[in-house]
Design a protein around this nucleic acid. Structure first.
Lengths: 199, 199
DNA sequence: GAGGATATTGCAGCGCCTGCAAGTTTGCAG
DNA sequence: CTGCAAACTTGCAGGCGCTGCAATATCCTC
């Protein structure tokens, strides 16, 4: 599938190099301070080529590799059968948040969000891709790709998004994975008013 | 607050005229087929002025008037005290979806989403503004602006978003308000696997 | 190698958006 | 009603994101 020789490897390399340098530059100077030309100059590739790999500048900065998305589906499928779909999805997403340090790109993206809050709105395309992947993952467990699967994915991702936002506002406080657990607890209680304050 | 004479009225008029004609034109020809210059020509105002009123073209097309946002907070506060915060928010949003025909701009915006699905990602700024308003509304009921308030708002809005998406994919099926109730039911059950299929 | 497929590049150009330095309109005092 | 200050509008010049097209370079297959 991926093995077709030199060609595909070079493509993957340029793709990776473009995203890495774009994210790394944006982290240091701010996502709006850098230009596509800059990134291309650093990688040694034509600006025109940039758009052969990414649909937009934001796609390069905030996009999620399809490999990661596929990984989510696989991991959710591999969770114990005893877990209900929402629990399985939550577990996988929590691991992803905790392992943020694993991938340097993933880590830089999180750091960029932390240091440049004004980009939050532009994460939406990526979030949407995540939501599609999570919906597929849930659907595969329930056997139905319907409103319910979509709702589960969207609600869990909402908790994840809230957690990241809260962490961003207080980076000194609990990490995103901890806040995610708290937020998810409320969701899984059916949004009932809690008697025990969350903080 | 709003009464300072002719000046403010004219501002409000231009603002409204720009948004109305922008949305109306976009509904007919597609959001990407129209240009800022076109809209300005139709309204009789300089292109430069357009950006004195709106931060971006998308802001004009998809933005939500602060009046509407304030209205949400007010309506949530006015719900019976017996309702928990999530229920109050759900009731208000359902009414908003049902009354879509009430405002012609609001109605055109919904129709535009239905006819031009490719713009969904660009609704995010508006969605975020909605989320802030809903969070504030919930916080006012619980007395705390914390992670929980944000979670309730985000989860309920996720259900709303899923409902609109599902409606868009099958305009002939149930309306967005009905789908919203179904999606919200699952959220309020804590995302437990339903025994009764949703469709 | 020859030939076909695929990637990369330069170029020209549209459209969004911004800062700046005018010009114009409105509000307010005197 | 007159003059002044503040607010709003405008044109201009220009950067940047992004795209289509045609030409070139690279890789794969036979």
């Amino acid at each position: 599938m991926t093995g077709t020789g030199l060609r595909e490897r070079k493509k993957a390399e340029t793709h990776g190099a473009l995203r890495e340098t774009a994210v790394s530059l944006a982290l240091r100077e701010g996502p709006d301070a850098i230009t596509v030309d800059q990134v291309c100059a650093a990688v040694g590739v034509s600006p025109r080529t940039f758009f052969n790999y990414f649909a937009s500048k934001d796609d390069a900065l905030f996009g999620v590799d399809t490999a990661v998305l596929d990984d989510i589906v696989t991991r959710v499928a591999a969770r114990p059968a005893a877990e209900d779909p929402a629990a399985a999805l939550v577990a996988v997403l929590r691991d992803l948040l905790t392992d943020a340090a694993g991938s340097s790109v993933w880590h830089d993206q999180l750091a960029m969000i932390r240091d440049h809050p004004e980009v939050l709105p532009r994460l939406d395309d990526a979030q949407r891709a995540l939501e599609r992947a999570c919906t597929a993952a849930v659907a595969r467990r329930t056997g139905r790709a319907d409103l319910d699967a979509h709702t589960v994915a969207a609600a869990v991702l909402a908790a994840q998004r809230v957690a990241v936002a809260a962490w961003r506002e207080d980076p000194a406080g609990p990490g995103p994975d901890v806040l995610f657990e708290r937020s998810v607890a409320l969701v899984r209680s059916g949004l009932t008013p809690s008697t025990h304050p969350s903080s």
